[in-house]
Design a protein around this nucleic acid. Structure first.
Lengths: 122, 122
DNA sequence: CAGGATCCAAGCCGATACTG
DNA sequence: CAGTATCGGCTTGGATCCTG
């Protein structure tokens, strides 16, 4: 089976790669993971995704919203309340991402061992 | 279904994220995609993966080798001949990555449309 | 509370030139 | 052929401070 769903057309290839760099980055995966549990407000996501800075969380959410993967709802109260939720397209991303995270979790230890081996030999 | 296969343990979370940043980057995905078609030498991969620089190809391959996802075989001929091949663990990555690429390909157009919409409104 | 703005260090990455 | 070495631009991302 050919993993590269795209033909040897380079423009197609770059387009897919472009999408991948967007949805494949660390924080995006974590945020989608958090939102897969349901609608959530900014501060909740912030707590769920450990280690992210406010700046990166905002940028990641904005990127996801721009791509139509996340919807943003503002309640004009004081203090403000903003909730985020996966769109249908965003939810369609859960399954492939889940497969990746499962793989990562299952292979983490083996990879670490390989790295130490490799580094010791070098 | 919870995408985050890991518990709310932050060290686990970072570890999975670490693996993800490695295997999720653009060139890694492309290289694994190319190698999914079988054993291949350096220059072949270089041609298959359009747009990659020698430097990045070398770094990507070395990273994959370090993680035990790719094996490297040198034939001490002149000129030298080096072949790369996915290890069993590397092959186990094909399926999840394939799912991601299929998703990317299927949603590329919709995402582009959303972006233009978003940018026009802003 | 949910960001926007700014600053700055770290590192990624492409281009280029060189080598066994 | 299959890399290595070096340089420089540019992005990335964390820290910090500020606001409606």
């Amino acid at each position: 089976m050919d993993v590269r769903a795209a033909p040897p057309d380079h423009s197609e290839c770059r387009a897919v790669a472009d999408v991948l760099t967007r949805i494949g980055d660390k924080w995006t995966v974590m945020v989608v993971g958090a939102l897969s549990k349901g609608r959530m407000r900014y501060s909740e996501i912030f707590r769920q995704v450990g280690g992210v800075s406010q700046r990166m969380l905002t940028l990641t959410l904005k990127g996801l919203e721009r791509d139509g993967l996340v919807s943003r709802t503002v309640y004009p109260t004081i203090p403000p309340r903003v909730e985020y939720e996966l769109t249908p397209r965003g939810r369609s991303l859960i399954e492939p991402l889940h497969a990746l995270m499962t793989w990562a979790h299952a292979n983490r230890a083996g990879i670490d061992a390989c790295r130490q081996d490799f580094d010791r030999r070098a």
